[in-house]
């Protein structure tokens, strides 16, 4: 999972501002839509891979970790594309997806979540006259990303507890305890946020 996994470093990419990196990510996305032949797309993928592993110093293991969850989807898409179009179309879609995911992972690994949320806050600043709190929107995004692993932990703990009681495949039975625990954690979290001054963000 690539969420919330900033990797500390001192490379040029780490030092680049979050806004520039986010713009570059969208730029890469636009280029990927415009390029519709395999060779330039392959060169782009190789280039992003080089930047990921060498320039940003993130290594091949992280590149593989970012790619692995995609494999099943790539296989499904490839089969579908070959079936409805041809092999070249399949290669193009696969290369586009890999380039997008690697770019997103590159930005995630080299950008602190707070820097990212600052950019979101600046973008939302224009909505302030409409009563939108930019800081709160940015924090909501950051908190959502941060809590994804916590929810997975809760699911794992509940499943472990059930398996230890012999309920190997009781996936539905896990739903209620997971939901109860997540809601209780949300209560405690909201209390902790108030204790840490969340209700004073816009008033001082």
């Amino acid at each position: 999972m690539i969420v919330g996994l900033y990797v500390p470093g001192d490379t040029a990419l780490h030092k680049l501002s979050a806004a520039v990196k986010l713009m570059a990510m969208f730029g890469v996305g636009a280029v990927l839509v415009l390029v519709d032949t395999v060779v330039p797309l392959a060169i782009l993928v190789i280039g992003i891979g080089f930047i990921f592993t060498v320039v940003a110093g993130l290594g091949r293991n992280r590149l593989w970790a970012a790619t692995r969850p995609l494999l099943i989807w790539l296989a499904i898409i490839a089969i579908t594309q070959v079936w409805v179009a041809d092999k070249e179309a399949a290669f193009e879609v696969i290369l586009r997806l890999i380039a997008l995911v690697w770019t997103a992972a590159l930005v995630t690994y080299t950008t602190r979540l707070t820097d990212m949320s600052d950019v979101i806050a600046r973008l939302c600043g224009t909505l302030r006259p409409l009563g939108v709190s930019p800081d709160r929107v940015a924090f909501l995004v950051a908190l959502t990303i941060r809590l994804i692993p916590a929810v997975f932990d809760t699911v794992r703990e509940v499943r472990d507890a059930q398996r230890s009681r012999g309920l190997e495949r009781a996936y539905l039975a896990a739903f209620v305890p997971v939901l109860t625990r997540v809601l209780r954690q949300a209560d405690v979290l909201s209390e902790a946020l108030i204790a840490r001054g969340f209700d004073r963000w816009d008033t001082q």
């Binding site: 919330g4 996994l5 900033y6 602190r112 979540l113 707070t114 950051a142 908190l143 990303i145 941060r146 916590a150 954690q185 405690v188 979290l189 902790a192 946020l193 204790a195 840490r196």
Partner: peptide, 9 residues
């Protein structure tokens, strides 16, 4: 502390 720590790092 898991309920109090909210940011990634």
């Amino acid at each position: 502390p898991d309920n109090q720590i909210v940011m990634p790092t």
